[in-house]
């Protein structure tokens, strides 16, 4: 019953085999992209957030087949040649990751915000992060990290 899906994952053209009912998160996880976390099953936590054609999506809420032909980026794909993406660096520097379980999802949304809304105010950044849950940080340092990465990007 497996279907071949052709997509670009983290810059590489790939063929992934998926069950027709399988969601994108489970497909990515079983294909080794374990940064894509499972925090729930219903789009409630954002831990599974990936970029699909440059937009953040809850990968648990779309079928794997939906991603056929799309470009997917997971957290594994952000660092280039061993160099961390600025948003990864500011997450480190600001202490935005405590247990780290929500971190992949948060970084993926933040990456989108930094790239596509460079002039966003803090309130807008907070709104953009509203789909992701973190139980450890109280979001303070996550917001700081995004603001810092945005500033670096603007320079």
């Amino acid at each position: 019953m497996n279907t071949d899906l052709e997509m670009t994952v983290n810059g590489f053209k790939t063929i992934l085999k998926a069950e027709p009912y399988e969601n994108l998160r489970d497909l990515l996880r079983k294909s080794g992209y374990t940064s894509v976390k499972k925090g729930c099953d219903v789009g409630g936590c954002g831990a599974c957030t990936v970029l699909a054609n440059d937009k953040p999506v809850y990968s648990c809420c779309v079928l794997a087949a939906w991603a056929d032909g799309k470009t997917i980026v997971t957290l594994e794909g952000l660092a280039k040649d061993g160099k961390l993406d600025p948003i990864q660096r500011t997450f480190m520097e600001k202490g935005a990751a405590q247990c780290g379980f929500c971190t992949p999802g948060f970084i993926m949304v933040s990456k989108y915000v930094v790239e596509h809304k460079p002039n966003a105010t803090e309130a807008e950044v907070r709104k953009a992060l509203g789909g992701n849950l973190c139980r450890c940080t109280g979001y303070v340092k996550i917001v700081e990290a995004v603001m810092a990465a945005k500033e670096q990007g603007l320079k």
Binding site: K37, T74, L78, A79, L84, F91, E93, G100, F101
Partner: peptide
């Protein structure tokens, strides 16, 4: 920065 922060921001941390 935390000494394990890198593993957490790269997705290397294995839960």
């Amino acid at each position: 920065p935390k000494i394990d922060a890198r593993a957490k921001v790269t997705g290397e941390a294995e839960y």
